[in-house]
Computed example of a mutant assay.
Amino acid sequence: MLSLGGSAVVGFAVGNAEQLGWLDKVAPKGVTTLTLIMVSGVVEMHKRFPDDAFAARVAKAKQVTILNTWIPNLELHGRLASFRARGAVMRELDEFEDGLIERFRNHPVLRGAADLPLEDLQTVLLQRRFLSLASTMAYDLAIDLLTDEQSLRIARVIIREEYPGNTSPGSTPWRREDMKADILALGVPREALVRSRKTLATSACIDTTMELIATAGESKHADVELLTILRFWGEVLVSVEYGELWRRIGPMLGDKSVFYYPHHVHDAKSRPLAAASPLSLTHSGQLGLRLVQLIDSHEARQRFRDTEQAVVAIKSAFYDQFTLAS
């Protein structure tokens, strides 16, 4: 019986012989040679096959080759075909989503953000502040309506990050205070912030968002729709907004920004849905991974598309008020 060390040596030698083509030369005619990979120890035991990590790697790979695999009760070729098909579906959804993102980014107000007069920029940010204040309410409502426990855990973690400073409660500003700090740093007088009120268009945007969340909770695919709203309305498009506005804000705040630039970075769609990974550190990435796992039918995919279109319509209507006023 070979020791573990001997097994490793034999495995290494056989692997090299296969790479050099020697096995084919020494094998009798008509005999197919197989490469035997011998493992010298157990690295980690899993209670289940790591579908998520495997799917992410398969989705990104140009070619997948299975040399020889034996895992009890695992038919890997069938899983591979399933994951490849799923990856193709996710790439279609990515293409659809990226088109919506570009359409939103090209809204006249966002496209022309770099040239906004300071007074107009301040007006946009004061109204945008009300949407930001409503974001925690949106998460609260969605958490009430979600049924998937993993989705709930992700949403809870995200909302709690809005209130940092657990080690010294009350001593750390929450995220909306950071927003106020950036707004004041951009020259908005405190009196103007105090006197600011939601316009009818801003109020309608908030009300329509809450209605969209409430209606999603009644759907057969409630978790898919709710996660789509949280990710697209609350994270991905927020990053797009702040990214475009940063072209005007950046030269004024630079590295002193404590709200707009950090949110532009942290909320961004950092990787496509087809390459969703448990290693993602962004909010959109964490929500996206679970969303990919829940989108398991044609109907679920259609609800994803319809929900994202509704979100873009709501966000665009908010910025329309500034084009109409100009």
Rank of each mutant, 00 (worst) to 15 (best):
R48V: 07
E95Q: 12
K180M: 13
S239N: 02
G6M: 12
G288N: 01
A222W: 02
K269T: 03
L121Y: 11
P173E: 09
E95V: 08
L200N: 14
P28I: 05
Q321P: 04
A155F: 00
D296N: 14
R105Y: 01
A317I: 01
E92Q: 15
D140A: 11
V292S: 09
E299V: 05
K198C: 06
G285N: 02
L281M: 14
R190S: 11
T202K: 05
P251T: 04
G87M: 04
L36Y: 12
R231Q: 12
T209Q: 07
I295Y: 05
G5C: 09
L110W: 01
G285D: 03
R91L: 08
P262F: 05
A114W: 03
N68F: 11
Y260T: 01
A142G: 14
A27D: 01
T307H: 00
P251Q: 05
T209N: 09
K269F: 08
R111Q: 14
W174D: 10
P189L: 00
L125C: 06
D24M: 07
L324A: 12
A53E: 10
T167G: 10
I314R: 00
A222K: 07
L2C: 06
A59P: 00
P117T: 06
I143F: 10
D182M: 01
K315Q: 11
R195H: 15
E308F: 08
Q321V: 08
N73V: 03
S257C: 01
R91H: 10
F130L: 03
H283T: 06
S82P: 02
K315R: 15
T307K: 00
A300P: 10
R303H: 15
R176C: 10
N106G: 07
M38G: 02
D255W: 06
W22Y: 09
G165S: 05
R197Q: 14
R79K: 15
T136F: 09
R190H: 09
R301M: 15
R197L: 12
I71G: 08
D306F: 03
A274I: 03
Y163V: 07
D98K: 15
P50T: 02
A185S: 13
H46G: 01
T215K: 15
D320L: 10
A138D: 12
Q293P: 04
N166M: 11
P169E: 05
A214E: 15
L237G: 00
F104L: 13
L281D: 13
M137A: 11
A81Q: 11
I71P: 07
I143D: 13
Q150Y: 14
L110E: 00
I154M: 04
L291V: 02
T167S: 12
F304S: 00
N166K: 12
R190Y: 09
E161S: 08
V89W: 10
V31L: 13
A181H: 13
E149S: 12
V31N: 06
I158K: 00
P262S: 10
D51I: 07
L273G: 06
Y242I: 04
V311Q: 02
S168R: 14
A192L: 11
R48K: 13
F130P: 01
R128Y: 09
H298K: 14
L287V: 08
